Computed example of a mutant assay.
Amino acid sequence: MAAEAGCGEMRALGLSLALAAPGVLAQSWNFDVRLDGKLIGSHRFTVEGPPESREVLSTARFDVKLLGISVYRYRHEARERWRGDCLQDLHSRTDDDGKALEIDRRAEEDGNSACLMSYAYWNPGLLAQQRLLNPQTGEIDELRVERLPDAVIPVAGRDVEATRWRLSAKSAGAKQEITVWRDRRDGRWIGLDAEVKGGRVLSYRLP
């Protein structure tokens, strides 16, 4: 059952997480990742460059164990190049418990001049999107966004009042519910929760 919790749901999360503020040339964060409250790994990301020319790197490493035995392993690395709020190109490699996936995609190859985002939780413009590029599969996911009641979330050892947004993503018939947390004071992206198979919860928190 523990292994099933990772397969597929990690893919739907669109694991490309970043945080950047206007005028900031380089930032990096390292999230603890938990499954039902149990630490299973980390997701580190960096954003470099001004808003008109950002480069994003995300690296995720998850290991789910049962009685000390590894039952699921996940490795993901994605490099993205952005121009403003538009994704220009993406290269990602994923090892989803032995299943290898590699994506190399450029905006000009799509034959579509429309601006497209990936799962850029760092970008407030994400909340206005209806379609997102999944950096693990290279597919276009349909998206519905809903505002949830504000709540408190622990961030780096202290409680922070936050806004919450539910992202309902749909890809190839599969659905994924993701809750994105933002600091109510400045709108920063500070956390994430997602329901995975079996009703389990995958959470991102700053240590």
Rank of each mutant, 00 (worst) to 15 (best):
V64P: 08
C7E: 15
R164Q: 14
A156Q: 12
K99Q: 11
L17N: 07
R61N: 14
A107G: 03
L133M: 14
T94Q: 11
R61G: 12
R182K: 05
D159C: 01
L19E: 10
G84N: 03
Y119D: 09
E142N: 13
D110F: 03
R147H: 12
R34M: 08
H76T: 08
L167N: 11
A156K: 08
G98Y: 02
L66C: 09
V196F: 01
Q136L: 14
A100M: 08
A20L: 00
Q130R: 15
W29M: 05
H76K: 01
E4Q: 15
Y74P: 03
A172W: 12
W122N: 03
W165C: 04
G187I: 05
G157W: 11
P22L: 03
L202M: 04
R164V: 00
A26Q: 12
L67N: 10
W189I: 00
H76W: 02
G173D: 12
A162Y: 04
A156Y: 10
G68K: 01
V152W: 12
S70N: 13
E102I: 01
R105H: 06
G199R: 00
S118T: 15
C86R: 10
K65T: 01
C115T: 14
G173M: 09
V152H: 08
Y204G: 00
E102C: 02
G187V: 01
R83K: 11
V160R: 15
T59P: 00
T179N: 04
R73W: 06
R164T: 06
P124I: 00
S58T: 15
G138P: 04
A174S: 15
E55K: 07
E177M: 09
G68A: 02
F31W: 13
R93G: 02
G125K: 06
D110G: 00
K197Q: 09
E109F: 07
T137V: 09
G6R: 04
W181D: 14
L143T: 09
A169Q: 11
T137I: 09
A78G: 04
L143I: 12
A26H: 11
T59K: 05
R105V: 04
G157A: 11
S58C: 14
D97C: 03
R184V: 09
E48I: 06
W29C: 05
D36Q: 04
L67P: 01
R158W: 03
I153M: 11
D36H: 06
L202F: 07
H91S: 07
I190H: 01
G41N: 06
A3G: 15
R166Y: 07
E109G: 11
I103W: 05
A20M: 00
D183M: 06
T137Y: 05
R166G: 10
I153V: 13
A12P: 05
A100S: 12
R131K: 15
K197R: 10
D85T: 05
P154Q: 08
D95Y: 04
P154R: 10
A18G: 07
Q130T: 15
E52Q: 10
R83I: 02
S168R: 15
K170C: 12
E77K: 10
K197F: 13
T94E: 06
Q27G: 12
